[in-house]
Amino acid sequence: MSSYPARKTFTSIRLVNFLEKAIVYAILLAGTLVILTPFWWMVTTSLKTPAEVFTFPPTFLPHKIIWKNYVDIFQKAPFLLYFRNTIYVVLLDMIGTLLSASLVGFAFARLRWRGRDLLFLITLATMMLPGAVILIPRYLIFKELHWLDSFRPLWVPSFFGYAFFIFLMRQFYTTIPFDLDDAALIDGCSHFGVWWRILLPLTRPAMAACAIFTFNATWNDFLGPIIYLSSQDKLTLALGLLNFRGPHTTDWHYLMASSVVAMMPVILLYFFAQKYFIQGVVFTGVKG
């Protein structure tokens, strides 16, 4: 690595640091604006009267803030039931995904076994065939298992692993030095022990990413529930949202209000899951 002369005066370093921070903030805040503008519209729409929703020109602030929209949606649709159903599916799915992705990713990244590389390619391949053409065969399988109109088609597969998450975990495992495994193995640890004691704690940021992704994807999925569920009392949140679209018209104020409510849990989860990113990984024992 080439070395650079680092002979700057104390004040110039401070100035550079200050300028640098200012630029970073400017960029990030500009991006924030781009991201939040549409959300602003979404939130204000959820607080408008139906008459005001699409008035022209659009109003930046509602003339009158209608908090009642948020009360109404819980009366118009059994939202608590939708929440319960969704949480049931999402939690099981998330646990299954984390467990299987972590284990299978480990096997792909850090263990040598015959057929591994071929199986890894097959794993990648499963993501490449468009889902539309395997919808019916898959439905048939769940029909044979007598799982239709139950939540099982939506979460049981997660315990067997999803290719995307396995691939993700595998890539993260490869960023961790092998010395750790070797040292533990020499100390008499089993491979399972290496996964459990050493690598699982080290892949926490990746696991947090997996958790957020799978939570988000399952939370918002509506094609799966539409195909596999039938009864009204089994609807999930994403389907419940669709219910605010009438046959010919859409209750935008309700749709937006319920969208805001529906995305809250995901945002909260992400907000709190962040400490896993910040805590970071300290590779004790890498040196030397």
């Binding site: 015959r114 395997i134 597969p157 067997f160 692993g161 399972f192």
Partner: peptide, 21 residues
């Protein structure tokens, strides 16, 4: 042992592949 653990750990995925994919 490594070989065996590899297959065991990837086992559910392989079963899943056969079952759903």
């Amino acid at each position: 042992q490594e070989e065996l653990t590899g297959w065991l750990m990837a086992g559910p995925w392989i079963i899943g592949l056969i079952l759903w994919t």
